[in-house]
Design a protein around this nucleic acid. Structure first.
Lengths: 359, 359
DNA sequence: TTGAAAGCGGTACCAT
DNA sequence: ATGGTACCGCTTTCAA
């Protein structure tokens, strides 16, 4: 049989106080003498009182629940963002209700319905195509929404995003500084703000027409696309790939053609995934999006919105992490280009705790 | 102003029925005529009724909430497990409350307290060291617990785990079949059941004393450890590393010594992480733990427990994925060893949807 | 088959 | 500084 819950009434009875007094005592509200408050709290602890958020939520119509809609299973990317959110909102006693947005519109609509039933007070969402499709249902929840990584106008302008354009520019500058003049672009479909501005920044910074091939987010396809790019433009000595996956494909194609990395072919990726950082022979130069920070800022932003503050758009920078795919890093790399990033700046580079990985 | 919620009472009034009738009509409980039930449901839909789970939870003392405690930010590993759980329990109208178990005992205890306040009805947990430390608090919740990947006796025997011992054995058999007779072990600390049985299976299958060096879950340290191993035992031609990270370190050390892969040095890893699958020159032979499946089974198991069924331990197999780090896969690889895994068997190998990754 | 009424455990307004 | 009390929206006996 389930052990009986200790209620505020129980405490009140024990102490000869009113229910109201106990409620105020525990919540720090109302006007109580210091002594009473102490007595109440002590007794609550003694009796092992835990508040009942269902009751509290019903009475106050505030669930202290935030909905998180992300494709968290595809990579550790969104897991990190979620961890950032969690850390930020836990202090305010909010908890996260999860919804994976991999899957069709119906699955997502199901999540949204559940969010409604549970009275979530705010949403943090990555606006992928599915989300865009059901944006109306999301808006119907009538709660603050914060978007991360990808802004979709319809969902408002409370957004935490990465300065993709500047990253694109920086990629161009980095390659130019290394002396490359024939530079190509291996790009994914520009059907998102992030990918589009990433490419735009790159092209604008270079200022001339750039050979470009489109590829899927898939190493095999990127490989083929890169082959196409290099055979159509054998003069290229550098390529900016808009993801690490594409970059790997480009490296692969380059190696097959006998190019030496990075002199005869320099490659920049995007994301600083493990496959970039831990690529054995050719660690990838790439951009490290501050994932956890994005989550933290998003959480903070959402809490602000809940407190009535106006919505704002926050733009974070993605530092360039320079590795062997663009630059031979000798031992004196520390006194090298100003681009070179101190490891400490990149949250990604962290020691894993063996007890935390199901290796 | 918050738009007024449609309540069951509203519906009852509109229909001239009692609250009870509406409740029964919507929940499919009680005895109602087919007609009334239809009328109620139709009206509910028309008025845009959504149930209020706070009220429902308070009245029925069932929260329909499951707590998930995992280090989901470190890699995509646990994200996949969580996605599996979600898919399994969503049909039963449960939702997942998340708790990251990276961090100290106090953070975890905080999660547990919140779980208590929110009346979670069950827990799925990865028993890392922190969890083991606060196992008592977890048990105090007095709800069913399902463990994934790592069993900790104190938390009961409802567990979904991987047959690590068999995987270890299979690693040994695979290397032996390839003709290797001098085999080493590059192992992480055996402070978990998973790691210990993985090593044990490997050793037992080989049946003789195996040169072994311990390393951290970190490529740099694994690299050093592997150097140590190979210089102490230059006769080794193969090594089983108990994680892909360690395997990368081993490859690195081997390459530095001028070994040709896989003839002069074969390496097996564990986990089928991206860094294994997408290692450019030397894709890693490794074990693919069925992560999402683990989640699904765990979810199913927990639901069973909630329905009063007895707890059981489920053991899943981790198929070996053979790649170039142990075997030269020519075009006729498909007619190769029976070990060779059909890609379709490995859930891991999936096409990523570009709109789902913040590349 | 349907309805009335008593909670579930709090919150919050209004007295005192 | 404290107490009384009317809900919050739904589930659940129990009676009709």
């Amino acid at each position: 049989m389930p052990k009986p819950r200790v209620t505020m009434q129980n405490i009140a009875d024990k102490l000869g106080l009113s229910l109201k007094a106990v409620s105020d005592g525990i919540n720090g509200t109302g006007h109580l003498s210091q002594l009473t408050r102490e007595r109440i709290r002590t007794m609550a602890r003694e009796m092992g009182y835990r508040r009942n958020s269902a009751a509290r939520s019903l009475a106050s119509s505030s669930s202290q629940l935030l909905g998180v809609l992300m494709p968290y299973a595809d990579s550790s990317f969104f897991g990190s963002i979620i961890a950032g959110i969690e850390r930020q909102v836990l202090n305010s006693d909010f908890m996260l209700l999860l919804g994976n947005i991999r899957g069709g519109n119906d699955v997502l609509q199901d999540h949204i319905r559940r969010f409604a039933e549970r009275n979530v007070e705010g949403i943090i969402v990555y606006s992928n195509q599915t989300v865009k499709d059901v944006a109306d249902d999301l808006l119907a929840l009538d709660v603050p929404i914060v978007q991360v990584m990808e802004p979709y106008r319809k969902l408002g302008d409370a957004v935490v995003m990465i300065n993709n354009e500047e990253a694109g520019r920086q990629a161009a500058r980095h390659l130019r500084k290394l002396g490359h003049t024939r530079i190509g672009l291996l790009a994914h479909k520009r059907n998102t703000w992030a990918l589009d501005s990433r490419c735009r920044g790159f092209q604008e910074e270079l200022g001339y027409e750039i050979p470009e091939v489109e590829c899927l987010l898939d190493i095999a396809d990127s490989h083929l696309a890169a082959q196409k790019l290099f055979s159509a433009h054998p003069e290229l000595t550098a390529v900016f790939a808009t993801s690490d996956y594409a970059a790997i494909g480009a490296l692969q194609a380059g190696l097959e053609m006998g190019r030496r990395i990075p002199d005869e072919l320099a490659v920049i990726g995007f994301d600083n995934l493990d496959i970039a950082a831990h690529q054995l022979l050719y660690p990838l130069t790439t951009f490290a999006q501050p994932k956890e920070k994005v989550g933290e800022v998003a959480g903070e932003l959402l809490l602000d919105l809940l407190h009535g503050k106006p919505s704002v758009t926050k733009v974070l920078e993605a530092p360039l992490v320079i590795r062997a795919s663009t630059q031979n890093l000798t031992k004196k790399c520390s006194e090298n280009s100003s681009d070179f990033l101190n490891k400490n700046q990149v949250e990604d580079i962290q020691q894993l705790d063996s007890s935390n990985i199901a290796i």
